[in-house]
Nucleic acid binder design. Sequence first.
DNA 1: GCCAACGTTGGC
DNA 2: GCCAACGTTGGC
Length: 162
Amino acid sequence: MAKRASASRSHWLFKSEPETYGWQHLVRDRRTFWGGVRNFQARNLLRDSIKKGDGVLFYHSSAEPTAIVGVAEVVADGYPDPTQFDRASPYFDKDSPRDAPRWYCVDIVPVTALAVPLDRDRLRGEPALADMMLLKRGARLSVQPVTAAEWRTILRLGRVDA
DNA sequence: GCCAACGTTGGC
DNA sequence: GCCAACGTTGGC
């Protein structure tokens, strides 16, 4: 069993369109696999870097408003995304070999909603978040790293006791 | 609905 | 291995 390089957990931000799968769906399901991600950079994070115990900011994209709305936690390390082998799934990938899966997912559970959801204006107004990947032009990565400082700032602004 | 930014594909 | 064309993302 490999020990993590650091004792402290890592932090991430996951984007989702609330009409497809929003915070309310995660609360309803109480646990879900974060699958259907079809981008190699995000895949690498899901497969190699995102670990059980890590913290996740849940972000609603293409929404009104677009906002960070909740905190989740990773409860299973990366494993092959089952939807890539499911012919009935919109995420089916005929080119992904069974013995060398191309796409990965992790499992997450909801921890708490932000008492104050943080929309983009609110995030942009916070100097401590000036370098957040989410706020960078053209940052489309749907699974992205969040620094410990950004994490603390967002939980404070969102009135999350942690 | 628009369109800028980006990732992927495929011709060469 | 380059790069134009294409498809997608996602804020506005």
